[in-house]
Amino acid sequence: MTWIKPSFLWMMYRCGWGTKEGQEVVLAVEIDRSGLEWALAHAELSHYVRGVHPDQASWRRSLRTAPARVQWDPERDLDLNPLPYRSLQLGLSGEASRRYADEWTVSVRDVTPLAREVHAAVRAGERERAAALLPVETPLDLAAPRPVRDGSSAPGR
């Protein structure tokens, strides 16, 4: 499964500012909005939620067949501490993974130097400078879920 992590600071938490073994290179992958919308419309939540799913067995079946899964993890601050709100993590497999690689990817940039620069500013106590270096992230406004597959609303919605 390939994971999309739209939050820069959450990604820094995950890769330790690009210092964890095997995670020394940090890439920013820009994808087409229609691809993201497709993945979200065909995604299932990574965990069972009473009231969203009829029962756990239905959720498990949907999770097994969904080409994408939605997970919400705590957003992070400059010290990589959890904040009281969450950021999306979007897992892609099967058809979604193929579409991501072959159709949705617009650009790939190495942001390792940026990760190191922000981390150095944080370590030096230059919080305003570190914050000013962060990529601009804005909430994504999406339309209401629309029916997919068998005419039911999109899974996990």
Rank of each mutant, 00 (worst) to 15 (best):
V122T: 01
E24W: 04
R129N: 11
Q23I: 01
R123G: 08
F8A: 01
E21N: 15
V70K: 15
D150K: 08
D73T: 10
R14L: 06
G18D: 05
Y100Q: 05
H47Y: 15
E21W: 08
P147S: 12
L88F: 04
G51Q: 07
A68Q: 01
V52Y: 08
S62V: 03
Q23T: 03
P67G: 05
H119L: 01
C15G: 09
G16H: 00
Y48D: 05
L83P: 03
W38S: 06
T19F: 04
S58T: 14
L36Q: 06
V108W: 03
G16V: 00
E128M: 12
D73P: 06
C15A: 13
R149W: 14
R127T: 14
W10T: 12
G18M: 01
R157I: 14
A57T: 11
G35N: 02
A124K: 03
N81Q: 15
R14D: 10
P84E: 04
P84K: 10
M1Y: 12
W10Y: 15
E24Q: 14
R99A: 08
R86M: 12
E128I: 11
G22I: 06
Y100M: 04
R69M: 13
L134F: 03
V25R: 15
T138P: 04
A124D: 07
L134A: 07
L83S: 03
A120C: 00
K20R: 12
F8R: 08
A28Y: 11
I31E: 06
T65H: 13
S153L: 15
G91S: 04
S58G: 10
G156C: 00
I4D: 06
S97Q: 11
Q89A: 10
A66Q: 06
R98G: 03
W17I: 01
L83W: 06
Y100W: 09
V148I: 12
E21F: 12
W104R: 00
A43T: 05
V25F: 07
K20T: 05
V148A: 03
L63Y: 09
G94I: 02
R33S: 09
I4M: 15
A144N: 13
A28D: 13
P135E: 09
W38P: 01
V29Y: 01
V148T: 13
